[in-house]
Write a protein that binds this DNA or RNA. Sequence first.
DNA 1: CCAATTTTGCAAATGAGTTGCAAAAAATGA
DNA 2: TCATTTTTTGCAACTCATTTGCAAAATTGG
Lengths: 150, 150
Amino acid sequence: MDPSSQERQSLVEEFAAKGLRLTSQRRALLEVIQSAKEHLDAKSLLRLAKERDSSVNRATVYRTLELLKKLRLVDELDLMHLNGEKHYYEVRSERDHIHLACFRCGKIEEFGSALFERLKQEIGRECGFHINVVRMEVGGSCSDCAKHAD
Amino acid sequence: MDPSSQERQSLVEEFAAKGLRLTSQRRALLEVIQSAKEHLDAKSLLRLAKERDSSVNRATVYRTLELLKKLRLVDELDLMHLNGEKHYYEVRSERDHIHLACFRCGKIEEFGSALFERLKQEIGRECGFHINVVRMEVGGSCSDCAKHAD
DNA sequence: CCAATTTTGCAAATGAGTTGCAAAAAATGA
DNA sequence: TCATTTTTTGCAACTCATTTGCAAAATTGG
């Protein structure tokens, strides 16, 4: 009941709310992205979306991802190219966060901080730059791996 | 004479100082990267390196860039994929900086700030993460383009 | 229901980056 | 210096993520 405890609107809802056609293929993809527990690339998204609607095609996945990026519903990540040149996707969250990629164990951590928010504000203020998308990725050794050596 | 007025060591010198073989092909590439006035992709690097040593091959460019990344002499950038999926390269500088990419006019600005440095320190402190590489890229409208509208 | 518009699957194409391999170049060591 | 070993290179073929042209299918708006 308390509005602050509400789940954020689902991707599917937000997508439909923009007046775009919610085809079964798009719905399948949106549901997959929304429910993902980890960062998924286009190939994985296709595989999982096909489990919901076997007619989903690779081209549709790419075309829909392009659309979602433009709509700012989804962010595209590189994750420091830890596993090749492909991209990963995640639902855009309320608060931006930094991705920390461990070169040793491959773990991806997310880190948000007030300092990060201030930095973004500073960019707007100092450079007169109007920010649409921010991507900050850090590569190195996570706390577990850093212990062992460098 | 004043040490602070000295140019930073050249890429070629740093490369040789690491005890690696400075072949004519590598020298050509290093000189091109060092003297670049803008961010260049592998294709452009190859073209320009060939002007210095026509024997330089694409494979060598990629192999050398891989080496330079590992040595932390060069950073790889995406520049928000403003022009396709290719990568751009720049000499690693004393101080990290953020790349601001304008989606409208394509201009790339660089921005370094104390806040950015503090944020990196915070990541180390809060997450116990040992940072090797940082990449922060921002997409939006530069000050000129932001005036016109959004 | 009909005409116009959007979205789709398919298959082929694109393009950045990688790889196996044999030849060339550089280092090593008698 | 010369032979041996190691590294680097060019070449051509390849991989693989992503894009595109197009005709068919689905949706929308009269």
